[in-house]
């Protein structure tokens, strides 16, 4: 009992973190709240499915292709839709949201609603850990989640390009005067976020069927995790997903599965009341920068 809670809590946390990673990265690097995140996640699933079924390419190649395509889609969305309204937070949010809804409802209209759509796992089969059966896919998700988190932390804190992007998010004017092209940087960060959404989609979607509403749920989960942990904070993202991941598995286990839905709502309301900027958020109030 305890071992399964621990293991599935860990899997659940990794799923949440992967889900929110792209959204959080884009926001942290460019300040764009990408409300098309869930749609990109789902689109990745459908694109991979189409590549596999219509083109018949090998699995790993399809995965790589999908990630690239979705990444380019994200960057293109920035270039052609967001750039004209850059800096107007309201328009950015509405524009990404409209793109997201358009993508999802287009798939719904195009008939992607039957039970035919599912992605293969990376590796079939499962393993027994401490007396609990887990399939390989879930183990892989933990691995991908941990790996990507480490990689991203390294990217944004240690590499030149990551630092440049973060610098721009902090202070666009200064970054401009230092010769950082902010539009280029933002396009990269939106593209990267989209590619991460694709990674998450490809890793998590094989656990079940692909359905349109997943797109909305993913956005909601990404929001809940980042709001709880604090926007712009990598540590917050991890702690947020661990808290939500374990809390929902524990409530599902001891109170019944229906109560795990309540966890998200309670978590958000509680964090709002205690620390509105999120657990690790350093969200600006009326502060002037030094």
């Amino acid at each position: 009992m305890e071992a399964s809670v621990l293991l599935y809590g860990l899997v659940n946390s990794a799923v949440l973190m992967l889900t929110a990673l792209g959204f959080s990265l884009t926001f942290g690097l460019s300040g764009v709240a990408n409300f098309a995140h869930g749609s990109l996640y789902l689109a990745a699933g459908f694109i991979a499915w189409m590549i596999l079924h219509y083109l018949g390419l090998p699995f790993m190649l399809s995965v790589v292709l999908t990630i690239i395509i979705v990444g380019i889609l994200g960057a293109a969305m920035y270039r052609y839709i967001l750039m004209p309204v850059r800096g107007i937070a309201l328009s950015e949010v509405i524009a990404t949201f409209a793109v997201g809804v358009a993508i999802l409802e287009f798939f719904r209209w195009a008939g992607f609603v039957t039970y035919d759509f599912n992605l293969p796992s990376f590796v079939k089969g499962g393993v027994e850990i401490a007396g609990v059966d887990v399939d390989y896919q879930r183990v892989i998700i933990i691995g991908i989640g941990a790996g990507l988190a480490a990689l991203l932390w390294y990217f944004s804190h240690k590499t030149k390009i990551g630092l440049a992007l973060r610098g721009m998010a902090q202070d666009e004017y200064t970054a401009l005067s230092l010769g950082i092209d902010s539009d280029w940087a933002a396009a990269i960060s939106v593209g990267l976020g989209a590619a991460l959404a694709a990674v998450a989609g490809l890793a998590i979607l094989p656990l079940g069927l692909i359905s349109i509403n997943i797109g909305y749920d993913v956005l909601l989960i990404a929001l809940a995790v980042t709001v709880l942990g604090g926007l712009e904070s990598t540590t917050g993202l991890m702690v947020g997903s661990l808290i939500l991941g374990f809390a929902s598995v524990i409530t599902a286990n001891y109170l019944g599965p229906q109560w795990s839905e309540v966890v998200y709502l309670v978590a958000i309301v509680v964090v709002l009341a205690i620390k509105p900027s999120g657990l690790f958020g350093k969200f600006k109030e009326l502060e002037e920068r030094v």
């Binding site: 709240a33 909601l220 980042t226 709001v227 509105p276 969200f283 600006k284």
Partner: peptide
């Protein structure tokens, strides 16, 4: 809080 925070919360 400033920025899109209000939007995120009211959406969720």
């Amino acid at each position: 809080l400033r920025g899109v925070y209000f939007g995120l919360i009211t959406f969720a």
